Amino acid sequence: MATISIFVGSVYGGAERLSDEIIEVIEQSNHQARLITSPTVEDVKVASHILVITSTTGKGEIPDNLLSLYSELNSQFPMLAGTPYGIVAMGDRSYGDTFCAAGRSFDELFRDLQAKPLGHRLEIDASEDFEPWPVTEPWLKQWLTKLPK
C-alpha cells in the first residue's frame, strides 16, 4: 500500500474537483491519499509518492497556490532520488505553446530533481474534454498499477 501525496494547482476549482474523484479511486485501490493544500518543499521531500494535478493559467503560468512551491523547488533543488510521481495537467489546446505548461514545468523539474515518472504525463484538453474525469480515470487506474509495492 502506497501513500500518495497530492499537490493541486487550481484557479477556478476544476483541478480541485478532479482531485476529489482521484482520491476516491486511490482509496478504493487500497492506497492512501494525502491532499496537501498548502505545500512546502518539505512536503515534497518527505513524500514517498507524488501526484500533481494542475491547471495552467494565463499565458502558461502555474496557479498561484503551487507557484511558490515550484519556485522554491527550483531554487533549493532537493534531489528526489527516484521518488515515483505522476502529473495530471489540465489546459486548453487553443492556447498553443502554453497548453498544459504548468504540468509540463513540474514534469521537467521533477525529472531534473531525479524523481521517477510512472508512465506518461496526462494532458487534458478542455476544448475537447469538457469533463476531465472520463479521460483521467483510465490513466489513473494504469498509473496505480505502476506504483512500487
Score class of each variant (00 low, 15 high):
Met1Lys: 15
Ala2Asp: 11
Ile4Val: 13
Ile4Gly: 11
Gly9Ala: 01
Gly9Arg: 01
Ser10Ala: 06
Tyr12Cys: 03
Gly14Lys: 13
Ala15Tyr: 01
Glu21Thr: 09
Glu21Asp: 15
Glu24Tyr: 07
Val25Trp: 06
Glu27Met: 06
Ser29Pro: 03
Ser29Phe: 01
Asn30Lys: 14
Asn30Ala: 15
His31Arg: 06
His31Trp: 03
Gln32Asn: 15
Ala33Asn: 06
Arg34Gly: 14
Leu35Asn: 08
Leu35Ala: 07
Ile36Ser: 06
Thr37Glu: 14
Pro39Ile: 04
Thr40Lys: 10
Thr40Val: 10
Val41Gly: 09
Val41Pro: 12
Glu42Gly: 15
Glu42Ala: 15
Lys45Met: 15
Val46Trp: 11
Ala47Glu: 06
Ala47Cys: 10
Ala47Val: 06
His49Asn: 12
Leu51Pro: 02
Leu51Met: 03
Ile53Phe: 03
Ser55Thr: 00
Thr57Met: 00
Gly58Phe: 02
Pro63Gly: 02
Asn65Ser: 00
Leu67Val: 02
Leu69Arg: 01
Leu69Lys: 05
Tyr70Cys: 00
Ser71Asn: 09
Ser71Glu: 08
Phe77Gly: 14
Ala81Ser: 15
Ala81Pro: 06
Thr83Met: 12
Tyr85Ser: 03
Tyr85Pro: 08
Ile87Ser: 10
Val88Phe: 04
Val88Met: 05
Ala89Phe: 04
Met90Gly: 08
Arg93Glu: 15
Tyr95Phe: 12
Phe99Gly: 11
Phe99Leu: 10
Arg104Cys: 13
Ser105Leu: 09
Ser105Lys: 14
Phe106Asp: 14
Phe106His: 10
Asp107Pro: 11
Glu108Leu: 13
Phe110Met: 06
Arg111Ile: 13
Arg111Asn: 14
Arg111Met: 08
Asp112Ile: 05
Leu113Glu: 07
Leu113Asn: 05
Gln114Trp: 12
Gln114Leu: 11
Gln114Ser: 14
Pro117Gly: 13
Pro117Trp: 02
Gly119Trp: 07
Arg121Gln: 14
Arg121Thr: 14
Glu123Asn: 06
Glu123Gly: 11
Glu123Ile: 02
Ile124Thr: 04
Asp125His: 01
Asp125Tyr: 01
Ala126Ser: 04
Ala126Gln: 02
Glu128Tyr: 07
Asp129Glu: 09
Pro132Phe: 00
Trp133Thr: 03
Pro134Tyr: 01
Thr136Val: 04
Thr136Asn: 07
Thr136Met: 05
Glu137Ile: 05
Leu140Ser: 04
Lys141Arg: 13
Gln142Met: 06
Gln142His: 11
Trp143Leu: 05
Leu147Ser: 05
Leu147Gly: 07
Pro148Gln: 08
Lys149Pro: 14
